[in-house]
Amino acid sequence: MTTQPDTLTTIGFDADDTLWQNEQFFRLTERHFAELLAEHAEREHLLERLLEAERRNLGAYGFGIKGFTLSMIETAIDVTGGKVPSEVIGKILVAGREMLSHPIETLPHVHDTLEALAGRYRLVLITKGDLFDQERKLAQSGLGDFFQAVEIVSDKSRPTYERIFARHGDGAAQAMMVGNSLKSDVVPAIEAGSWGVFVPHELTWVIEHVEAPKAAPRFREISHLGELPGLLSDIGDRRS
């Protein structure tokens, strides 16, 4: 059977803070980090320095907990003039390891929504970050069976979505990307020709903040994943 050019056949889902909680653990660790370095820097100044280090190190370490841990160590060395106590470095490493073993907490409506869509569309998990950590979280989430493909990428850009939706679907024009990051999940997917569905999360890393492409015909926003099936029906009705 030939698929019509405007038929939606493939849906990509972001993972962190779209399917399960993630950013809250970074915020908790930042708070602990500020407490460890309280004698050397004010909290706001310290976190500004940490963010600068994270931005600077993305090209070398990529996204994820390991890069975040290395950036904390680098920041601790910087704000103490190279005199950070070894026990503080040790506690930072422990905090990073604890993040890597934290239990997975799926967000509301995730399981029911994926179950409802799995038989109607090709579902593809598209996430960036550390390979081992993302594989661990997917395995612990119990959601793996819903996805026909999993792509763990170093970054998300227009070419990323063009490549993935050509490989696992019928091309970007017949695909949709769903996620909590406008910068990574929505804007580049729309640039590739896909639908982009923004699902806001109360905590989103500042590096992921950009303006919503509200004028784009294929941009949509929902308050939680439970609204996605209704949105898909609405899109189908408008096309028919």
Rank of each mutant, 00 (worst) to 15 (best):
G64M: 04
E74H: 11
K137I: 09
G64L: 02
G236T: 12
P188H: 12
T3V: 15
L231M: 13
T10D: 11
E115W: 00
L231Y: 00
Y161V: 06
G230V: 02
A189V: 07
A212P: 10
A216T: 04
P200M: 07
D155S: 06
F33I: 11
A166E: 14
D14V: 11
G119P: 15
H168F: 14
E221D: 02
F198H: 15
I92V: 15
G169Y: 10
K214T: 15
Q4H: 09
K66E: 09
L117H: 05
A189L: 13
G64Y: 06
V199S: 12
L225Y: 13
T106C: 15
V94H: 13
V178E: 06
G59C: 11
A215D: 12
Q24L: 03
K137W: 01
F63E: 05
D237Q: 08
V187P: 08
P200I: 03
L100A: 14
P159L: 09
G67Y: 07
T160W: 04
R120M: 02
D145G: 07
H109A: 05
S141A: 05
T80Y: 09
V187N: 11
L47N: 06
P5K: 03
E135N: 04
H209N: 07
N22A: 00
R56K: 15
G67M: 08
L225C: 10
G62M: 07
L8V: 15
M176F: 00
R43L: 03
A192N: 08
F33C: 03
G64I: 06
K183N: 07
E39S: 09
I92L: 13
G179L: 03
A116R: 01
W205E: 10
A216M: 07
E208L: 10
D78Y: 11
G171W: 06
F13L: 05
L138I: 05
R163I: 05
T80P: 09
E211P: 01
A34W: 01
E87D: 15
V178I: 09
K156Y: 05
I207R: 08
D155F: 00
L143Y: 10
R220V: 00
F25P: 02
F165P: 02
V150R: 08
R167P: 00
R97V: 02
L232N: 07
S233F: 02
F198E: 00
Q24Y: 01
G171N: 04
T106L: 04
E44P: 02
L138N: 02
G119S: 12
